[in-house]
Design a protein around this nucleic acid. Structure first.
Length: 394
RNA sequence: GCGUCGGUACUCAAGUGGUCAACGAGGGGAGACUGUAAAUCUCCUGACUUCGGUCUUCGAAAGUUCGAAUCUUUCCCGGCGCACCA
């Protein structure tokens, strides 16, 4: 791929919008190293596939020799983010922030060369601002802009609480851009307002306004936007088997989008997958390829192949997986499983038994349904539902 | 500060003296089916149970009542309006 092609891909693949449209392309073609700003949230350390799309985008910039600048939002983290729910609580301690960061960097390190990444904590400068400076910055914006933002307006209309502090967030994020002299900021479409605020503040401080590159957000397991608070994420720390299975559980309609956004396969291959589906090929098979591709990005291709095999044998051929949790104990099976938190309560256990979800697996693939919820635990392999396996040992 | 509306299970959201462990939706679980942990359909989703029941829940506490998520009082929290202030 030539540099022009790479640049074209940077500007289009998975990208929702670029502001201003042509200026960034021109700058990139010019080849001068740019400073690419990216905000890191230290409150949720685990990276998911949705967030990873942004990191891969950074990687593409890095490959072209640009400087990646991580802004660690420790100020907002320590202060406590009010942006969702009544979460005045978070108030992370210094230690938690540091701990989260190291796990975050470890994961990002799978994608980026972290040694070349410039890192800043925004307490460095935000903590030092005086009321005078803050009010000066606040004067750059008008209230109407802030409260007409979609998510704020919606909440106001619904009679939900919106704290005044929340309105200060775009200022903080925007000021970060001023401090680090960002040429480009990368974020999801949900960050548009904040990133635009960066442009405005940079202009106010007589600097060149950054370009902003907004990425489309991808859907999670349940079809809603992938987000830690929904619990519908595929995490980079997921085991290979888990990650594989999660990808397989995606809706068929998302296959192409995932190929495009969540993998780095050539654009040609993306459209191949699309035509395959349109031709009427079994979506399952295309999805198997997708899952293998994604798993190999984070666990390596050997492991990905294994994960594929394991998936096929467990769920298609209905074999027993090799890595089953083993538990020791005696007494009633239900009580034992409850004590190990495999079932949540005795009521839950009885319900499962009543539904015919509990089976004891005999040799030769024979399954014996358990119908008595008071059976004693005897050594052997048990299956609860389709996914839960337990092995009782002496 | 005054007035007013509200706080219901994982989330959203009905219920406004007994038929309420509490409608519905989402999420979660199970079964059937299959192309997969997809889609679709059905069921379940507070806990304990000797399956007869029992116990604990509707912001908190106290009260009225044979009986309260539902009524009263106080308190805590939130929205909105007004006032006050700048």
């Amino acid at each position: 791929m030539t540099n022009e092609e790479k640049i074209e891909e940077i500007l289009t693949r998975g990208v929702a919008e670029v502001i201003p449209t042509d200026k960034l392309r021109a700058k990139l073609l010019e080849g001068k190293p740019l400073r690419i700003k990216f905000g890191v949230d230290p409150t949720s350390p685990s990276l998911h596939l949705g967030r990873a799309t942004a990191i891969w985008k950074l990687r593409a910039f890095q490959d072209l020799g640009h400087t990646i600048v991580f802004i660690i939002g420790d100020f907002t983290g320590v202060i406590g983010d009010t942006s969702d729910k009544e979460s005045e609580r978070p108030m992370l301690t210094r230690e938690t922030v540091e701990q989260n960061l190291s796990t975050y960097f470890e994961q990002a390190g799978k994608i980026l060369d972290m040694s070349k990444v410039e890192k800043h904590r925004n307490t460095e400068w935000l903590e030092k601002l005086t009321y005078r400076q803050i009010t000066e910055q606040a004067d750059v914006f008008s209230l109407a802009d802030f409260i007409s933002r979609e998510n704020i307006k919606k909440r106001l209309d619904e009679g939900k609480r919106v704290s005044l502090r929340e309105l200060l967030y775009p200022l903080m994020q925007g000021y970060d851009s001023v401090e680090v002299n960002a040429d480009v900021e990368i974020g999801g479409t949900d960050q548009k307002f904040n990133m635009l605020a960066g442009r405005k503040l940079q202009e106010h401080f007589k600097k060149e306004a950054q370009s902003i590159l907004m990425l489309d957000l991808i859907e999670g397991l349940d079809g809603r936007k992938m987000s830690s608070s929904w619990g519908n994420t595929i995490n980079l720390t997921d085991t290979a088997n888990d990650m594989f299975g999660k990808v397989m559980s995606l809706r068929d309609e998302l296959i192409v989008k995932y190929f495009k956004y969540a993998t780095r396969v050539p654009v040609q291959k993306v459209s191949d997958a699309q035509t395959a589906l349109e031709r009427g090929e079994n979506p399952r098979d295309v999805k198997l390829d997708l899952a293998e591709e994604i798993v190999s990005m984070y666990h390596g291709s050997d492991v990905a192949v294994q994960a594929r095999e394991s998936f096929l044998s467990t769920f298609q051929k209905k074999e027993i997986p090799d890595d089953i949790e083993e538990i020791k104990g005696e007494g009633k099976l239900g009580e034992l499983l409850k004590s190990k938190e495999i079932v949540s309560s005795m009521t839950d256990w009885r319900r499962l038994v009543g539904e015919g979800a509990v089976k004891r697996l005999e040799k030769g693939g024979v399954e014996e349904k358990i119908t008595d919820d008071t059976v004693l635990a005897t050594p052997g392999v048990y299956k609860i539902g389709k996914r839960r396996f337990v092995k009782i040992v002496e």
